[in-house]
Design a protein around this nucleic acid. Sequence first.
DNA 1: TCAAAAGTGTTTATAATACACCCATGG
DNA 2: CCATGGGTGTATTATAAACACTTTTGA
Lengths: 230, 230
Amino acid sequence: MTAGYELEDKVLLAVDCIIFGFDNGDLKVLLVKRDFEPEKGKWSLIGGFLKKTETLDDAARRILHTLTGMHDIYMEQLYTWSEVERDPAERTISTSFYAIIDIKQHDKELIEHHNAKWFSLSNAPKLIFDHDQMLNKAIMRLRRRTSISPIGFGLLPEKFTMKQLQKLYEAILDRKVDKRNFINKIKSMDILVKLDEKDMSSSTKGSYLFMFDQEKYDAKQTKDFYLKIS
Amino acid sequence: MTAGYELEDKVLLAVDCIIFGFDNGDLKVLLVKRDFEPEKGKWSLIGGFLKKTETLDDAARRILHTLTGMHDIYMEQLYTWSEVERDPAERTISTSFYAIIDIKQHDKELIEHHNAKWFSLSNAPKLIFDHDQMLNKAIMRLRRRTSISPIGFGLLPEKFTMKQLQKLYEAILDRKVDKRNFINKIKSMDILVKLDEKDMSSSTKGSYLFMFDQEKYDAKQTKDFYLKIS
DNA sequence: TCAAAAGTGTTTATAATACACCCATGG
DNA sequence: CCATGGGTGTATTATAAACACTTTTGA
């Protein structure tokens, strides 16, 4: 069997990862200082090149791990960018992926990787190539996702307060939501367990801690379940 | 300036187009008989390879035109497929695009291209590689899009009846919708103009013809406008 | 005159939104 | 005893869904 592919152009396929982090009410993005040309020394998304022996998802995981030490991050494919001059050095197509994680839970992994740094969305530096476009598209996608389906585990400590959860939504959606409506909505979703424990760190009264109920959450995920935050 | 890209793998980047067609209440997909190895003679999506000098969108348009004669079709990027063994002949990544068109308006262009053929979704043949997956993902995306935002121009004749529009939605969503709710909804969107003309071809009473109001439609498109069909 | 498709509104249910006061406690 | 953040419920509005009869006219 001979394939008729001999005359076709081959190109470099890059992967760029947009990692959003949530910490203390603030939505951030993880960037790295590029250590090779072109644009060496400038800030960029976490990127690298696909190898022939791996899928794009594999490549994204490998690159993320190499540049930041993080592992077990589920990333979702976002878009493939193909402007001819997007990388001035050579014709390169890039597929972008994104994920959102809890910064605290991954801080230790990151400490030794001094090239990677968290930036608040509001004061992120200008990025190389079309990475600003990628970031924007990722923000849009994240907002849409967030407003129609509950945010998963792993973004908050195992035990968290309603206030923390609300702050998370507010950070992603970039607007305030009504406390009572928010709580009612979350309750109606029935994916949280209220604990007897209280968090005393931010008030005299203390606020109840909650956990995600993995089973209920999974059950709902499979259906056409959605959440709309007022 | 030297780029540090020399050691990276290069791959073939393919483009596959999923063209949905609507004709007479039936939703179809356009397939071609492959005329090169591997899998020569089998049915596949409309595909080809990216050239170094074009974007993916350019490539999609070029390939669609080459294989079917169609032009001026706006396609939306769907997903990039990268399983290592997806094409057994050589490592190939593929970005898929989709569009939906009015079959009647493009029939003439297609007549001379005997390799391309419309198939109803319900009895499409098995496709090569991962093309069935691509098709499925495209159907899902099309349904979601359809249920949250009005379908554009170009899918129906310039003048059309409410019945035709309803059939279009029903074909895409693959379920019946209530006539009165549908009409009320469409009216509330305020993007159609009712003409004085009637279509007499399907009843003695005749049914009014409508046209899209391009300006109103564009205005709404820019907003967060959406439509939900009961 | 009747068959076949067109056209038309109202009621009900559900979901989204707006909104304000009391509670508990450590200092 | 009071300042601070925690906790709670209801009324209103908007949207979705269910539902059936009358009109027209060519054959």
